[in-house]
Design a protein around this nucleic acid. Structure first.
Lengths: 255, 255
DNA sequence: CGAGCGACGAGAGCAGTGCTCTCTGTTGAG
DNA sequence: CTCAACAGAGAGCACTGCTCTCGTCGCTCG
């Protein structure tokens, strides 16, 4: 038990420090990837519910117990998939909003980021459900996922920081407690030592949280079927709301 | 097989026409309730993932196969719980917004409805996840659930209809397609023959959809852990946003 | 009122699951 | 070159959803 965790730790640091040193390490990394790939394949077909360690192992031509050398449990495999999924949406949003090398007006970047998120979600509904639906394991390891999960909101924050918009209309005044939370949020340091948004007006940061919530609220409602009776092809409603949110943020018009 | 479905149909119509005719029917209805209650109990503790027919049966002192006389599958039990959950939030929201017998300004009713939803969700997180999280069965029977699922949005629509607010600021113009969808939505007839909102301006109806999405987006983000790093006690952010949404709707201030 | 049909619960059983343990063979570091 | 760490195989445990069969009881209809 104790020795197990020690080896796991040693292996972890080794891999972290130097990728693919020996043949064994290389094989290990490769197989880990293959397991995740096959798992993702099955996830895309049947959903997280149906994903089974045994069938993944079967498909890879190994026996189920061997798989436990790579992932300590089914939940750990799912957690790995969760992180990958966060990174996938995050990368997609980054590419859409920041791919053009400083190109594009803020409103256009906002539009592109929103559509990148929605398109990715529609293309990978089960992966989306895995990360933005009900948390499957008993409230899984948070710390490993936060960095990846923060990538999409960080895209938004970067747009706001570089624009520093001033909304056309006022909202309710921030309460003292909320202002404190927002200030602390802006001062939070990312893993790479930067502060998130120390320069952003708290009012703007707050609106950022609102549109972030609205964006994923819409995508979730669409994918999880809450819109079926109302705005069934959701495209136009989505586009319209994205524009409305841009107004709400105060992003300058580019029509 | 064929005879099974026939009896199921016959039973269904019987129950539908006249509740608790014979002692057998009464016992059946009672046991069905007890099964759901026990299932809901286990759901609240361990989540939908862990809910097992066998343990429900065990707890009720019956054998697992007997349970299949009442629910054809695990998914069917879950679907029953889903409908009950929709009805529970719906009732809660109705009571909060409409309990005071026409009492209360629209803005106050909106506030109360929002808090009713959030409070119910926080009190029954697993039930909330069941209905607003990732759809668990392979995209379950929609038709049975829509009436119950519509109760919360209907509360909102009723507030809007009785207020007919005119928002303080304009949004982007509705595109033709979106306007058409909204018009069709307003003309939709409920099971009791009424039209949903034929009199509501499309612009208002659209804003209703937005705030509906935002409300559940916030609650989901809070319960599913997306807010942990940012606005962790979510109370103040929630209150503030509810107010902001009321402004967005154009509900008259009551401060 | 009494025969028969349908509902009901029990029990055994099947295929599948996550996970553990033990056992061999292999690999790479000292 | 040796030996400890690692990798995979296989059996096995406890559990799951679901099916089928078989007595038994209750209700209904003749």
């Amino acid at each position: 038990m104790l020795s197990e965790s020690c080896t796991a730790l040693a292996r972890g640091t080794l891999v972290g420090m130097n990728a693919s040193r020996t043949a064994r390490d290389r094989a290990r990394a490769e197989l880990t990837q293959e397991i995740k790939n096959e798992a993702r394949r099955q996830l895309a077909v049947d959903g997280a519910q149906k994903l089974s360690l045994r069938s993944v192992a079967r498909e890879l031509g190994m026996v189920s117990s061997a798989l436990y050398r790579y992932f300590a449990s089914r939940d750990e495999l799912l957690t790995a998939l969760i992180i990958d999924a966060y990174d996938a949406v995050g990368a997609q949003a980054e590419k859409a909003a920041e791919g053009g090398e400083e190109g594009g007006a803020p409103r256009e970047r906002w539009r592109k980021a929103c559509h990148a998120v929605r398109d990715w979600a529609r293309a990978n509904p089960h992966e989306y459900a895995l990360i933005y639906g009900s948390p499957i394991p008993g409230y899984a390891a948070p710390q490993d996922t936060v960095a990846s999960a923060a990538r999409v909101p960080m895209v938004l924050i970067r747009i706001l920081r570089e624009t520093n918009p001033s909304p056309a209309f006022e909202g309710p005044p921030l309460t003292e407690g909320l202002a404190g939370q927002l200030r602390a949020l802006g001062e939070q340091v990312t893993p790479d030592g930067e502060r998130i948004a120390p320069d952003l007006p708290l009012e703007t940061l707050n609106r950022g949280l609102v549109v972030w919530t609205q964006l994923f609220g819409m995508v979730s409602f669409e994918l999880f079927g809450q819109f079926v009776g109302s705005v069934d092809p959701t495209d136009e409603f989505f586009d319209h709301t994205v524009e409305q949110l841009a107004d709400f943020l105060g992003l300058p018009p580019t029509r």
